[in-house]
Design a protein around this nucleic acid. Structure first.
Length: 114
DNA sequence: CATTTGACAGGAA
DNA sequence: CTTCCTGCCAAAT
C-alpha cells in the first residue's frame, strides 16, 4: 500500500477534508487554509496539504483545485506535477494572473455548508 | 510518548 | 519581489 493506511479507514479530519474537496465546483479553487477551515480546523492548512498528497480518492477528489493562500501552486502529486495542475485548472476556466490563480475571481465561495 | 516532516500561512527584513 | 523565521496540525517513525 503506497497510501498511508490504504483507501479504507481515515481519520475524521482527513475524511472531512476529502468530503469537502469533492464538493469543489469546476472552474473554482480553494486554498489549503480555506479547506482546513471548512473541515473544521482553520489552522490545519499544513495537514490538508499532507492529506491531498496522500489523496486516496484520486478520481473523486479534485485535489488540483486546491492552491496556496496567494493563489500559487504549492504542489501536485498527480501525473505531470504542478505543470499539469495549472493546465487542468486553466481548462476548467479558472482565471490566472501570471503564475498564480486570481482568487478574486476564481476562489470558491462556499455558503451552503454544514 | 518524543521527534521529525511537509502540497501551508503570515509577518518581517 | 524574494528569503527567512515562527506558529500550527496531523501522520509516520
Amino acid at each position: 500500500m503506497t497510501i498511508t493506511q490504504s483507501a479504507k479507514k481515515h481519520s475524521v479530519f482527513r475524511n472531512r477534508i476529502y468530503e469537502v474537496a469533492k464538493k469543489i465546483p469546476r472552474g473554482k479553487v480553494v486554498t489549503y487554509a480555506q479547506l482546513a477551515a471548512l473541515a473544521g480546523n482553520p489552522k490545519a492548512a499544513r495537514a490538508v496539504g499532507t492529506a491531498m498528497k496522500e489523496n486516496p480518492y484520486m478520481p473523486v477528489v479534485p485535489c488540483h483545485r486546491v492552491v496556496g493562500s496567494d493563489g500559487s501552486m504549492k504542489g501536485y502529486a498527480g501525473e505531470g506535477g504542478v505543470r499539469k495542475k495549472v493546465q487542468m485548472l486553466h481548462e476548467e476556466g479558472v482565471i490566472f494572473n501570471g503564475n498564480r490563480v486570481d482568487l478574486t475571481k476564481s476562489q470558491w465561495k462556499n455558503n451552503t455548508f454544514f
